[in-house]
Structure formats: structure tokens, C-alpha cells
Amino acid sequence: MPVLKDGDAQQPIPSAWRSTIREIVHAFVLGDYRIGTPIAGVRPIPAQDARQIEDYIRDYGETLVDLPDDTWDSSVCIWLGRRWNALVDLWTVSEGRSDLVLHLHVSEAEGGFAFEVYMVYVP
């Protein structure tokens, strides 16, 4: 999937972003909500935001798992003029695709893209 700047319609998550998004979710699966082990292009998550993400996932009551390929069938992004908003469906052990989403802000950066974790929540 190419990276498109279409502010009129949601698009699938671009292929160029998928490995980075998988790494972010893998950090959460390991309980690393601040992303203490740097991931190229991913901004550090402030401590307060990391606590909110951890609390929300814990309160949801399910155990996150790494993203399967099926997540790309339902996850979307949209161009907002200066950046993209991306909503990535998260998966759990007992539910498969859950109601939780990872909300990211993605912007162009020198040599690629910059990812900022906005929040994890149930929309």
C-alpha cells in the first residue's frame, strides 16, 4: 500500500509504516509503554502518557499480542494536511481483534516518517 495524501478518504495503513507499527505494539506486548528501547522514527512516549496507555490496557482486561497480518485489513489512516492520523486495531489473546486501537500521528521526516503514539483506547 502506498503512502497517500488524501484528506477526503481513509486509506489502508501504508506498507512503509507497518514494520515500525509492529515494533511499537511489540514493545507494548512486552510491557514497555515508554518505548525504552528506541525504535527508529518513533518519538519517546512521555511518562504520563505511558501510564495512561498502560492503565487503559490493564483496565481493558485482556492481554495484548503482536499484530497479525489481518490487522491491516481493518486499520486505517487519513491525511490531515500536515500529518496523518492512523488507527491500528490491536489484538488480544482471547479476543483476536479487540476493540482497542493504537492512535498514531505520522508525519514526514528526513529520510522517512516520524511516529508519535497519541493513545491506546476504545473508540
Rank of each mutant, 00 (worst) to 15 (best):
M1Y: 06
M1F: 09
P2S: 12
P2I: 13
P2Q: 12
V3W: 02
V3R: 07
V3M: 11
K5V: 10
D6M: 02
G7C: 06
D8M: 07
A9G: 02
A9N: 13
A9C: 06
Q10F: 14
Q10K: 11
Q10C: 04
Q11C: 11
P12V: 10
I13K: 00
S15N: 11
A16P: 01
R18H: 10
S19L: 10
T20N: 03
I21M: 05
R22V: 09
E23R: 08
I24C: 06
A27R: 15
F28P: 03
V29H: 04
L30Q: 14
L30A: 15
G31C: 09
D32H: 06
D32S: 05
Y33E: 09
Y33W: 14
R34N: 14
I35T: 07
I35P: 10
I35Y: 02
G36Q: 13
T37H: 07
T37F: 08
I39G: 04
G41H: 06
V42M: 11
R43D: 07
P46S: 08
A47C: 04
Q48A: 15
Q48S: 13
Q48T: 13
D49W: 00
Q52E: 14
I57S: 03
I57Y: 02
R58D: 15
D59R: 12
Y60S: 07
G61T: 08
G61H: 05
G61C: 09
E62L: 12
T63F: 08
L64G: 00
V65G: 02
D66V: 12
D66I: 07
D66S: 14
L67E: 00
P68N: 02
D70C: 10
D70P: 02
T71V: 15
T71S: 12
C77I: 02
I78S: 04
W79K: 00
L80C: 12
G81K: 09
G81Y: 11
G81C: 08
R82P: 10
R83E: 13
R83Y: 15
L87T: 10
V88E: 03
V88G: 02
V88L: 03
V88S: 03
V88Q: 00
L90P: 01
W91V: 00
W91E: 07
T92G: 05
T92M: 08
T92Y: 09
V93C: 01
E95T: 07
E95W: 05
G96M: 08
R97T: 00
L100C: 01
L100H: 00
L100G: 00
L100A: 03
V101L: 11
V101K: 05
L102T: 06
L102Q: 04
L102Y: 04
H103N: 10
H105S: 09
S107P: 12
S107A: 15
S107I: 02
E108W: 12
E108F: 15
E110I: 13
G111Y: 09
G111Q: 02
G112I: 04
G112C: 03
F113R: 01
F113Q: 01
F113A: 00
F113W: 15
A114K: 14
A114F: 03
V117K: 04
V117Y: 00
V120R: 01
V122M: 11
